[in-house]
Design a protein around this nucleic acid. Structure first.
Lengths: 195, 195
DNA sequence: TGAATTGACATACAGGCTGCATGTATGCAA
DNA sequence: TTGCATACATGCAGCCTGTATGTCAATTCA
C-alpha cells in the first residue's frame, strides 16, 4: 500500500491522499448513498486502508462534509463562470437560475447537495455551506434587481431562501425525468412576476 | 413481555403492537434521527423485542415509512380541517399555506417529512406520499385559482412542486428560528404576484 | 370439541461496520 | 544522528441489522 514511485514531501503526500479519499468517497456516495457506503469500501477504492481514512478525517461524516464542500464550490464556480454582466438585473437572475439547473444536472449533485447533505449534516450546516457559495450570488442578484426597481421590495433573506428552495426542487424534478423546459419557464415566470 | 391483562383477538393485538412500534419509532426518530436510532432501542421503548418489530415490518426502513405515512396524513388532515370554502381562490391558497406552516410547526415534522424522509425513502417515494396527501390540496387550489383567473396560467405540476418546495423551506427556516412573519409575508407576496 | 395450522412474538446467531488503540516506518528538525 | 512528529496499517471492542429457529396462544376445520 506504499507509494514508492516518486519522492514526495509529506505535505504533498497528505494532499494527494486526502484528494484520493475524497474522490473515491464522492463516487461511492453518489452511487450508493451515504448510508449505503462503508468506510472499508471507500478506503479500498482509494487504494488505502481505513487507518489512513481515520488519520485524515475525524469520522465518516467529516469525510462526507469535505465531499459536499468541494461539490458546492464547483457548482458555484460553474454558475459564476457563466455570469453575464451585460444583462438586465431580471435577465441576470433568470440566466443565473438556468446556469444553476445546468450545473446541478451533473451526476450525483442532487443526491450530495439536496438529499444526503441536509439529512446527514443538517439544514443549518448546508445553509452555511452554500451561503458561502451558491446562495450568495442569488442573494446579490435579488438585491440588485430590487435596487433597480425590477422586482418589488421584499425581505431579502426569506426571498432568497424560498427561491433557492424552488430551484433546488426543480433540479430534483428534472433529474427525476420531469419536463425541464416546463420547470425553467415556470421558474422564470415566478421570478418575473415579482416585478 | 406477554400481555396477560385482557383477552384480545389476534387482529387487535397486531394493531396495537404496530401502533406502539410506530409511536416509539416516531419519538426516537424525531429525537435522534433515523440513522441515530437503532432497532433495539425502538423495540425496548415499545416494550417489545426486535423479533416483534421484524415480524410486523420487513425492515427498519419499512417501519420508518409507516411513521412518515402517518405523519403526512396528519398534516394533510390538519390543513383540510382549517379550510374555509368562503374565501376567494387566492385567499384560500394563502390561508392554506399558513395552515401548512402551522401544522409543520409540530415538533419533529420537519425532520421526518423534509430531512430524513427524502434521504431515506427517496424523493420519488416522498412525492408519492404527499401527492396523496398534502400536495393534492395545493394543486387543486392552484387549478381553481387559474380557472377563476386569479393567477396566471402556468404548467400546473411544476408550479405545484415549486411552491410546495418554497413552503417546505419556509417550515424548515421557521423551525430553525427565522422570522416566521417575514416568511409568511414573502410567501403570500409570491403567490399574489402570480395574479 | 379436539387436532392441525397459522400468527405473534422471543431468543440466538452471523455477518458487517464504526471508531479507537496500538504498532511501524518514514520525513523532518535540532 | 538523534529524537519527535507525521502517515499510515493492523487489530480489537462494541453495536447494529437481518434472519433462522423455537415457543405459545389464537384460529380453523374436520
Amino acid at each position: 500500500m506504499q507509494e514508492r514511485s516518486t519522492r514526495r514531501s509529506n505535505r504533498e503526500r497528505t494532499q494527494e491522499t486526502r484528494a484520493r479519499l475524497i474522490a473515491a468517497a464522492r463516487r461511492l456516495f453518489v452511487e450508493k448513498s451515504y448510508a449505503g457506503t462503508g468506510t472499508p469500501e471507500i478506503a479500498a477504492a482509494a487504494g488505502l486502508t481505513r487507518g489512513a481514512l481515520y488519520h485524515h478525517f475525524a469520522d465518516k461524516q467529516a469525510l462526507f462534509q469535505a465531499v459536499v464542500d468541494e461539490e458546492a464550490e464547483r457548482v458555484a464556480a460553474e454558475i459564476e463562470r457563466q455570469a453575464d454582466t451585460a444583462l438586465t438585473p431580471l435577465d441576470a437572475l433568470i440566466e443565473g437560475g438556468n446556469a444553476f439547473l445546468q450545473a446541478m444536472a451533473a451526476p450525483g449533485r442532487t443526491r450530495l447537495l439536496l438529499l444526503d447533505g441536509p439529512a446527514v449534516l443538517g439544514r443549518a450546516a448546508m445553509d452555511a455551506i452554500d451561503g458561502r457559495h451558491g446562495n450568495r450570488t442569488l442573494r446579490e442578484g435579488l438585491a440588485a434587481a430590487m435596487r433597480a426597481g425590477a422586482i418589488r421590495r421584499l425581505p431579502l433573506d426569506p426571498l432568497t431562501a424560498l427561491l433557492a428552495a424552488a430551484y433546488d426542487r426543480a433540479a430534483l424534478a428534472i433529474e427525476a425525468g420531469a419536463d425541464a423546459q416546463a420547470f425553467r419557464l415556470t421558474l422564470a415566470a415566478m421570478v418575473e412576476s415579482l416585478g
